[in-house]
């Protein structure tokens, strides 16, 4: 009992340093640049937006950070541990516990042949949950939190709408209480009203769970709503970084000015 209380206390204790430190991250595709010389720190509870046009290296950067691609140069330090040089089992374990990855297309992040409950429960079972009742309860709880009726727990994702699939993917990722979430265009392909609800939901979850988030998007409105800080990428390099409002309201780099002025004002 005492031990448990202590472990909760130590978990609650705010961390001293940044959650994620990135130094000189570089990835080449042959002779071409994927992303080059990216450095930043991410603090617990902070939401970092990465914006830029298609092909600017946003997704490459995200994949390198999440360990899906191995970078050619640079270091990624998560909570004091170098995730680039760490052994694959350890990285996978991080991917199932401390990290989460929300794909743009829910079909990439969900198991379409497995029920909603099974999808949410997979991460729990992967880290050793072996009590069916408890897994099901957690799944049902999480479906409720992402506004999916728990009555649909045994339905396959195929039977869900696009917005529901995306919310299911989020539930599946957050069920193990991660600290760092990578999101790749989480609102892409959804219509605007569904986007708005999803953003609302994400904002609430991020605040309630104190998540650190790295969100890649080409939609400046999404960045404005969710991100505390913004990095603008072009041709694989970071050309501007700063507080979201600062970057969007007073863009310095010529490309950022172009990007901001390209947004349609309704």
């Amino acid at each position: 009992m005492m031990e448990r209380a202590l472990s909760i206390l130590s978990k609650e204790k705010p961390q001293d340093g940044p959650l994620l430190q990135v130094e000189g991250l570089t990835k080449f595709y042959g002779a071409r640049i994927g992303c080059a010389d990216v450095s930043f720190d991410l603090w617990p509870g902070e939401v970092l937006g990465i914006v830029g046009e298609s092909g600017s290296g946003k997704s490459t950067l995200l994949s390198c950070l999440a360990g899906h691609l191995s970078p050619d140069r640079g270091r990624v330090i998560y909570a004091g541990r170098d995730t680039v040089s760490m052994a694959e089992p350890e990285r996978r374990m991080l991917g199932r516990t401390d990290w989460a990855f929300v794909h743009q297309n829910p079909r990439d992040g969900l198991r379409m042949g497995v029920s909603a409950g099974g999808n949410v429960g997979e991460r729990l079972m992967a880290v050793g949950a072996r009590n069916y009742g408890a897994i099901r309860e957690a799944a049902s709880d999480w479906l409720g939190r992402v506004e999916i009726s728990p009555g649909r727990i045994d339905d396959r994702p195929r039977q869900f709408s696009g917005g529901m699939q995306q919310r299911l993917q989020i539930a599946r990722n957050l069920v193990t209480g991660p600290k760092l979430v990578f999101m790749d265009e989480p609102t892409g392909g959804l219509d605007v009203s569904v986007q708005a609800r999803l953003l609302d939901l994400l904002r609430g979850l991020v605040r309630d769970m104190g998540l650190a988030v790295i969100i890649v998007t080409h939609d400046l409105a999404v960045a404005r709503l969710l991100a505390h800080r913004l990095m603008v990428m072009k041709d694989g390099r970071v050309i501007e970084a700063g507080l979201t409002d600062q970057v969007l309201d007073d863009p310095q780099a010529a490309y950022t000015q172009l990007l901001v002025s390209s947004v349609l004002q309704v």
Partner: peptide, 12 residues
């Protein structure tokens, strides 16, 4: 983890 997902689906 996936192996237990199959058993979970069975029970569900």
């Amino acid at each position: 983890g996936l192996m237990h997902v199959k058993l979970y689906e069975d029970i569900a």
